[in-house]
Amino acid sequence: MSKVLTTAVLAVGLALPATAAIADTADKRIALSNNYAGNSWRQAMLKSWGKVGDQAVADGVIAAADAFTTAENQVTEQAAQIQNLILQGYDAIVINAASPDALNGAVKEACDAGITVVSFDGIVTEPCAWRIAVDFKQMGKDEVLYLSEKVPNGGALLEIRGLAGVFVDDEISAGIHEGVAETSGFEVVGSVHGDWAQDVSQKAVAGILPSLPEITAVVTQGGDGFGAAQAFKAAGRPIPLIIMGNRHDELTWWKEQKDASGYETMSVSIAPGVSTLAMWVAQQILDGQDIPKDLTVPFLRIDQDNLEENLANTEVGGVANVEYTLEDAQAVVNAAR
């Protein structure tokens, strides 16, 4: 018996160096625990995961990259899902979390079971997990910095916020207000919650618009730019400079305005393909690399001159996207070191 075991260990030991050139993770299985799939960003995120994951499996880099999504966007549901993934014996769990702290118990259980946990976008605060976070505050600030270049004299701003009570909304808004404080001449004269949805934004902007003075620019959080444009058009008001959020409808509208009247703006958001970045980071950790616990996701920014190129690469109804490679992930890791 022990002889057979020794032979097996030896065989594995001999076999390993040969495959190590590709990766030591060929037998590792990675799961994606996702809390929500009901919008175009999340759909693109899952699609990118599927595409890059399948390729990685086909190339023999990892053994599996399975995606699991909960139906109700509930913390309890996702905690149960993570426990199931632990029982199924995955080597790494990549999480887009419904809550930054409420899943910590389940995440700790996974860590204790020797599973690598990487959270991204919706990160978790449990110290044993890796975090690939977005600097949302900087994103909001960048919008105002762009405006101060474009409109040096300043003017009245309308702010469209996201979903009230969500951390991301607070961060982007804080960045916008920080930017307004640091530059001169801008004032936020109105603020509405658009829930990152085009129809909700349209409704909210249409409601507040009649009571506002002339608006110089609209600062947004993504998904709301086209709705704002429609509300301005319906009210018969001059269209201000509206910051966009990389959605296909927003980019299409921008392109139409650009062709018709030379309309200028910029668009910034996070590429849904950040899920693939998280997958590569998980693979690198499984590979034994020393990866810092806190990493930052690069923004995907679209400007006047690369609009056409990005629009052409964006699926109809989707979000401008980038799928990350192993090299991209290594670059992000090196930047954090």
């Binding site: 949805a197 909700v200 709705g227």
Partner: peptide, 15 residues
């Protein structure tokens, strides 16, 4: 509503 808001989206009915 799809006509009014420029297309059908997955979360259009939520509210």
């Amino acid at each position: 509503l799809s006509g009014f808001s420029g297309g059908a989206s997955l979360n259009m009915g939520a509210e």
